[in-house]
Design a protein around this nucleic acid. Structure first.
Lengths: 208, 208
DNA sequence: CCATGCAGTAAACAACTGTTCTCCGTGGGG
DNA sequence: CCCCACGGAGAACAGTTGTTTACTGCATGG
């Protein structure tokens, strides 16, 4: 597995990753629509023109960031939904999983939450597509559970979307609370748990 | 009630409103953090320096926009929650109310949804504060209903927040669907109704 | 082993940005 | 009635922006 990538292509991908990382850092305190091409190249330590070797525009960079950020979000959602039955301790575990992920990749979820309704149409579309895919996967996972007997696929998709949206909102809430105030973080945790629990109760009593 | 405002102050507020309107228009396809001062003054048809007579910065303009946009959102939320008991036809009415409001003030809700997680800290804080206020009003309204017997204030606030967030997400969904495709809009309506209904079912079975 | 494709450089471009200073016209309080 | 406070205009400022053109060095495939 040594010659899997030439020295050349490896260096290119390395630079590309540097662009993504630098952009993600800069996007901590601004939105994509205000992110300048030169700003990014300056942060990477590279000439402005080098940018074009990797992306057409900052909007394109944004789309690439969506892939990366939601790729890292994928295991979290899978993990959350696989434990998404009714029992309280499993809900607690799911919320803890979200909190852990936020602390591991804060820039990723900040980017997604920010640009989901952001000013760049292509990025919004890319996020929406990925979120729809996630919702569909969650629906498939929910369908396996015995609690879903008698549910229509449409209703399951509705529930899955509600779960996914709730996860992202919870993650965003953890983000705002971050400034090492464990009290504040505990508050977010408690609210998130109860929201999840209420939704689960709604699920359990949906039929009939 | 004629001399309530001098000609001078009236003209000033008129110009100020022109700034707000122009900014709201420009923010249809970009985020606040990329909104330039000169861009706004150009849209208003006024000298760049005139901007400083009304706002310190574009971030200040954003805070002012929060007041205006959430001021217009207030009656919608009140109207929605006053009908937010369990019956299906009331839920339908609430969703219709949201749809109507989105069609009446699309720029307002687009701004709120976009900047709620946007790149300008002061604006995010202003929105969060107003949303918290809304949630608290909804909590007070819910507390009056007989379904809330036995509920703690904390749980009621949790439910209220869930409702408020759901309203904004529904409004945002209507916004994305807008391109005069009534089929798409109907789909959003149906999903929103069922989400609301599931939450209401969860509410009804929360205790015990 | 050499020719070439390609990542990255350097300089220049016109256009745009936020901010400051100076000025003007006039509505309104004394 | 008149003086002045104030909304707004205009010009100028140093920086920054995205994009183009021409260039360099080197890894790599034939």
């Amino acid at each position: 597995m040594s010659h899997s990538l030439g020295v050349r292509q490896a260096q290119k991908q390395k630079t590309r990753q540097a662009f993504l990382d630098a952009a993600l850092g800069l996007l901590a305190e601004q939105s994509l629509s205000s992110l300048g091409l030169r700003e990014v190249t300056r942060a990477v330590g590279v000439a402005p023109t080098a940018f074009y070797r990797h992306f057409h525009s900052t909007a394109d960079l944004g789309v690439a960031l969506v892939e990366e950020a939601l790729g890292s979000l994928h295991p979290m959602i899978s993990g959350t939904v696989s434990t998404a039955d009714d029992s309280d301790e499993r809900i607690d575990r799911a919320v803890a999983l979200i909190a852990r992920h936020v602390r591991a990749y804060p820039a990723h979820i900040r980017f997604i939450a920010r640009e989901r309704n952001g000013g760049v149409q292509k990025v919004r579309a890319a996020i929406a597509e990925q979120m729809d895919r996630f919702a569909d996967e969650v629906r498939a996972e929910l369908a396996k559970q015995p609690e879903s007997d008698g549910w229509s696929d449409d209703d399951l998709l509705m529930l899955a979307g509600l779960y996914v949206d709730q996860m992202l909102m919870t993650a965003s809430a953890f983000l705002e609370a971050d400034p090492d105030d464990p009290h504040e973080e505990e508050r977010v945790t408690r609210v998130a748990r109860r929201r999840m629990r209420l939704i689960s109760i709604g699920r359990r009593n949906w039929l009939g």
